[in-house]
Simulated assay, not measured.
Amino acid sequence: MNSVKSLNKWANAHTYLPVDLVRITLGVFLFFKGVYFITNIQYLQDLISPIDQFGGGMMLLHYIAPAHIMGGIMIAFGLLTRWAIMAQLPILMGAVIINFMGQMHSQNLLFSLLTFVVCIAFLIYGSGKNSADYYFKMQE
């Protein structure tokens, strides 16, 4: 718990608007990716088909899109950012793995790797000063 508090203090002391804009952009990207998956469910089903042979394909379909939508909203507003990112990490690791198990799509691999790296950065950095977390913390 002390390490999270010390990370938050460091992040709040070194908060810059461009970093918050990157967080908001990440949240909006994940939100629209979730909406895209819901509107094109066959595309999502085709994407996870290489790992569907291990079972749980229907469970993945019902986890990925809502996690992207809710996680994207939470990340964009900076509300429970670390928890929302932890929900995204298994999906993003799966996105990277799927590119190596199935047919390689370089653009999908690039987007998933970039999103994964940015999520890891915000998992460490936190939501920053211009976020709902900081606002609610100051209200206490």
Rank of each mutant, 00 (worst) to 15 (best):
M86Y: 11
F136M: 15
F100L: 13
M138W: 01
F122M: 10
I41Q: 13
A13W: 00
T39R: 10
V19E: 01
N40C: 04
S49G: 04
T115W: 00
I85Q: 10
D46S: 13
G78A: 12
M70W: 05
W83L: 15
V118P: 08
L109W: 11
I64Q: 08
T115N: 02
G56H: 04
Y125T: 05
G126W: 04
A11E: 06
S106H: 07
P50Y: 10
F122S: 07
F77W: 04
L123K: 02
S112P: 11
L114P: 00
N130L: 15
S6K: 09
V4I: 15
Y16Q: 14
Q45I: 07
I38S: 10
P66K: 05
I38D: 06
S131P: 05
Y16S: 14
G72I: 00
N8C: 01
Q103H: 12
F32V: 02
M70N: 00
T81P: 04
Q42F: 10
L7R: 05
I38F: 14
M101L: 15
L26Y: 09
G55L: 02
M101A: 12
L7V: 02
G56V: 04
V35H: 03
Q103F: 05
L92K: 08
L47Y: 15
V35K: 03
T15N: 12
Y43Q: 13
T39V: 12
M101Y: 09
G126Q: 05
G27N: 06
H62M: 15
G27T: 06
M1C: 03
Q107H: 09
F29R: 01
N8Q: 05
N99Y: 04
G72Q: 02
I38C: 10
G78N: 11
V35Y: 04
A67C: 13
S131E: 07
L110C: 04
K9Q: 14
V22P: 00
K5V: 01
M58L: 14
M74L: 15
V35P: 01
T81A: 02
K5L: 01
Y134S: 10
M104C: 03
A132D: 00
F111G: 00
I98G: 10
A13F: 05
L113G: 06
V117R: 00
C119K: 08
A76W: 01
S127Q: 06
F31E: 03
V4R: 12
N8A: 04
G57L: 08
L17V: 13
F136D: 03
I38E: 12
W83T: 15
A65V: 11
A121H: 06
G78W: 10
L30G: 01
P90V: 13
V118G: 05
D133A: 07
A121I: 07
M101E: 11
F29S: 09
K137F: 05
H14C: 03
F122N: 08
K137R: 11
K9L: 12
P18M: 03
H68C: 12
I24E: 00
L60D: 00
I91K: 10
E140T: 14
G56I: 07
G72C: 02
V118L: 14
T81S: 07
S131T: 06
D46L: 08
N2H: 08
Y125S: 11
I75T: 03
K33C: 12
